[in-house]
Design a protein around this nucleic acid. Structure first.
Length: 429
RNA sequence: GUGGCCGUAGCUCAUCAGGUAGAGCACCGGAUUGUGGCUCCGGAGGUGGGGGGUUCGAGACCCCUCGGCCACCCCA
């Protein structure tokens, strides 16, 4: 095996997978446009301090997962581990926040984790951020919008919306203290990971997968009881709006976020089809972040979805479809033998591409016998083979041979001038 | 970062008390003169992930390392 390989966790997206990706990107783009969101394109590299200040100093992402290094000027830079921080930075820097602003972006993110299903070191997210609206109607909008995405992707039956409010910063602080004090008395009953979290990020214990720990939490103080009035009211309003819009959801009082900047509404779209990495989309409100990063205080809500995970779901969903429906195949495959014939084919295909923009027409390259070229034509999946040889050149014609359609008539010789109309009917274009 | 399983041709796999590797698919060529899909014949393709050790001899045993998958962790 060659030792020049892709870096661990940074996988190539191969030609057979790219149709899923393109479908996802096109669907997202059109749905977001329909809701009035504008695309913003952001650098992959940012100053390390941006992420330290936004994601939270004590999160695993910042502590042990970021790709950080010094550039030639000695500045500490980091490959972005998520998109929100950079988006907020750009919005502040370019004065985009003087009025409510709806933005989205897409691209690769980097975290040094152990790769597994649905988790790569270079992974891709599409993020959606709505700035400048403090009321829960905008929370409902981004959730509605995400629900529409799954519908448009045909993934609606496989996903479920989980919802919670983690309250204001102050309310969460008070709750965190209460929870910590409750759990400290039972520290030895906690699993090892949760004991560690108790001192770093106690709220993460709430979504522990350890059943004993979960049982211990049954009698723990509930986040719900610590919500400030504003958060509780907003959450009720959000639920009301979702009910009115017919969006189904499950309130999960133990749903929390891994990043520090969230407050109030948090939500996750989850699936049970992807093993351990079942969250395909997650987000929430982050009213303090803009100010924290040096902008004018601006409320905000947003979410990000994981493209790899969505692509996995789509691939499963489409598994029964024929490969022809998924993969682009040529309409025509042109072959020729002899120099004059090749030139005739070349010119004819250029003409045809002028006439039918976007229709895939492959001109055989690399020479070979008629037989070997016909094999290539067949393998390509093309509907028609166009054949040029000495006879065709001499008579100014081309042989058109249907390769798929059993009901079509056989090969026919067509004057070049009539090729247009033959193709129009044969291909239905 | 931790753990389990795994690593033989492009792909899916086989072989074997340890005696320097095979199949199917894919690829290339041929089976009458300019023509595919089926069939038949032939060909090419592997330093058995890499390195070390045990042995007369290792793909097969041991160690290390790299990589893959899944889970923990983390999180989209």
């Amino acid at each position: 095996m060659n030792d020049i390989r892709a870096i661990r966790g940074m996988s190539d997206i191969l030609p057979e997978e790219t149709p899923y990706w393109r479908f996802l990107e096109q669907t997202v783009s059109s749905v977001l446009t329909a809701y009035g969101y504008s695309e913003i394109r952001l650098p992959i590299l940012e100053k390390t301090a941006l992420f330290n200040r936004s994601i939270g100093e004590v999160t695993d992402i910042v502590e042990k997962e970021m790709y950080s290094f010094e550039d030639r000027n000695g500045d500490s830079l980091t490959l972005r581990p998520e998109g929100t921080a950079g988006c907020v930075r750009a919005a502040i820097q370019h004065g985009l926040l003087s009025t409510p602003r709806r933005l989205w972006y897409a691209g690769p993110m980097f975290r040094h984790e152990r790769p597994q299903k649905g988790r790569q070191r270079q992974f891709h997210q599409i993020g959606v951020e709505a700035f400048g609206v403090a009321t829960p109607d905008i929370d409902a909008e981004v959730i509605l919008l995400s629900a529409r995405l799954w519908r448009a992707m045909g993934l609606e039956p496989q996903v479920q919306l989980q919802l919670n409010s983690i309250g204001s910063i102050e309310a969460r602080k008070a709750y965190k203290a209460a929870l910590t004090s409750y759990l400290l008395q039972r520290e030895t009953d906690l699993d090892e990971d949760s004991q560690r979290r108790l001192h770093s990020n106690p709220l993460r214990i709430l979504d522990s997968k350890n059943t004993a720990t979960q049982a211990l939490l049954d009698d723990a103080p509930s986040l719900q009881d610590y919500l400030d009035e504003g958060s509780a009211d907003d959450f009720a309003r959000l639920c009301d709006l979702l009910d009115a819009a017919g969006v189904e959801y499950v309130v999960n009082r133990r749903l929390v976020r891994g990043l520090d900047y969230y407050n109030k509404t948090v939500f996750e779209w989850v699936t049970d089809q992807l093993g351990a990495q079942g969250t395909i989309c997650a987000g929430g409100r982050y009213d303090g972040l803009v100010e924290q990063l040096g902008g004018k205080a601006t409320p905000a809500v947003g979410f990000a979805m994981g493209m790899e995970r969505l692509a996995l779901l789509l691939a499963e969903q489409w598994a029964e479809k024929s490969s022809a429906a998924i993969h682009e195949q040529p309409a025509v495959y042109a072959i020729s033998v002899g120099d004059a014939a090749y030139k005739a084919a070349l010119l004819a295909l250029e003409e045809l591409r002028n006439k039918y923009p976007g229709v895939q027409m492959v001109l055989h390259a690399g020479g070979g016998s008629f037989k070997s070229q016909m094999k290539k034509a067949d393998k390509s999946g093309a509907e028609l083979a166009l054949i040029w040889g000495e006879d065709e050149v001499a008579s100014g014609s081309v042989s058109v041979k249907p390769l798929r359609n059993a009901t079509a008539q056989g090969q026919q010789s067509v004057p070049l001038a009539e090729l247009d109309s033959i193709l129009t009917t044969a291909l239905g274009v």
